[in-house]
Amino acid sequence: MPAPKAQPKPKSFQDLILTLQAYWAEQGCAILQPYDMEVGAGTLHPGTVLRALGPKNWRAAYVQPSRRPKDARYGENPNRLGHYYQFQVILKPNPANLQDLYLTSLYKIGIDPMVHDIRFVEDDWENPTVGAWGLGWEVWCDGMEVSQYTYFQQVGGLDVFPVSGELTYGLERLAMYVFGVDNVYDLPFNDPDSAVPLTYGDVFLENERQQSAFNFEHSDVEMLKRWFADCESQSNALRDAGKPLPAYDYALKASHTFNLIDARGAISPTERQAYIARVRDLARGAAAQWAEQEEARAS
């Protein structure tokens, strides 16, 4: 591949997102909107986890807000957030030139390959909750991890046929790098020259503070435990009814509810393992049923 030229730097956080969206749309991806549920990672959007299963081809890209209650830091840590964005791309099957496509996406957002050191460092991704794993890399730019790049091998505990290529960009971190900013809240959210220039902090700082207080101080653990049980039985009932899509939604709800309980440090390590196993059973069960149905619909 001839060494490509880097494009000019995007003007803002949202410009970077728009650039990635436009680029992956050009590659034939459906640009999905964020899933309307609380999830801990972009992978959990059904557009990745469920679509990676079954024989049908699929290409999609989307921004997914991710909530990780435990990582919340009251807006005081310049690098850590309880709520942040991932940009997710899935191409099924992976095209032979996926690495080149990915590298071009970096050039598009202004990373000059003649000046920056981009490396593929072994990192095999796995998410036991949804029974998924794959081989791939962390992609480093000047020593910083800017993406996770994975060839899915299993999802929902099942081998996938065909294999999908999955890319996850940590948007805030990538943007901080591109803009040379040391504090996430200083990122220009929109064009700094616009009529109302907004930083990431203008948009999210207060949210981080209040959500952190909720995560660590105000959540009602007993209520959350009840919710968890309810989500679990609803998910199981939906699966019994042969409806894996809503069953998966309720698995996601259970998962986030567990994350909230966990953030309070309210459960022992043994209990914690048991909760994780329960979420895993829900997610895997829904995924397996979805895979079965997709297979049947395709034949």
Binding site: P93, G134, D159, F161, P162, V163
Partner: peptide
């Protein structure tokens, strides 16, 4: 030590495996 399947050919068991996609 760990190998994988990839690409359009990865539609069934028993196809080629390598450490990362062969080019």
């Amino acid at each position: 030590p760990k190998s994988m399947r990839w690409g359009p050919n990865s539609t069934s068991e028993g196809e080629l495996r390598w450490v990362r996609p062969l080019q």
